[in-house]
């Protein structure tokens, strides 16, 4: 979570609000912020750190592990209509890549701005070519887009 706190401005610039959730109490969240996160991120955590002690929220998001009693690393991108556009769930020992989350947000924002007329192909980044799905594109994606030039 320190990576998200440290790079919060990048998310703010994209108009993204962050909520973090774990089974720890809000009191432990405070101490973690004060004793460790604020030192790693060089700022106090700038978003809501939610407490989900019984795992009720984690259960409806499918990330609560009954055996260990904690929540897995679940990351959800939710659009302004409240629709979940992306999710990623990982077991605890490997951390997330915030840059990938930001790339996905940018791609979903681009598609939304185009009112669904454009699609972002694999590896898309802002400024790269999008595809315009339609009858003319069927069977012709190979003329428009190359996986070698985009990775």
């Amino acid at each position: 979570m320190s990576a998200v706190a440290a790079n919060h401005k990048k998310l703010q610039d994209l108009g993204v609000e962050v909520i973090s959730v774990s089974v720890d109490s809000q009191f432990v969240h405070k101490v973690w912020n004060d004793q460790e996160l604020s030192k790693m991120a060089k700022t106090d955590v700038p978003f809501h750190m939610a407490s989900d002690g019984p795992g009720n929220v984690g259960k409806v998001y499918g990330v609560f592990d009954e055996i260990t009693g904690v929540e897995l690393r679940g990351r959800f991108i939710i659009d302004p209509d409240g629709v979940i556009q992306a999710m990623e769930v990982m077991t605890p020992p490997v951390g997330r890549q915030l840059a990938e989350t930001i790339r996905q947000v940018q791609a979903f924002q681009h598609v939304r701005a185009s009112k669904g007329t454009e699609a972002c192909p694999a590896g898309w980044k802002p400024g790269a070519k999008t595809l315009k799905p339609g009858p003319a594109l069927v069977g012709n994606v190979w003329k428009e887009w190359s996986p070698f030039e985009n990775h």
Binding site: M1, V4, L11, L14, G15, V16, E17, V18, I19, S20, V21, S22, V23, D24, V28, H29, V31, W32, G58, Y61, V63, T68, V70, E71, L72, R73, G74, R75, F76, I77, I78, D79, P80, D81, G82, P92, R96, T101, V105, Q109
Partner: peptide, 13 residues
């Protein structure tokens, strides 16, 4: 609602 949200679960403080 009306904003993009990044919801992050993690194993623990």
């Amino acid at each position: 609602l009306g904003k993009w949200v990044l919801l992050c679960f993690y194993p623990g403080d």
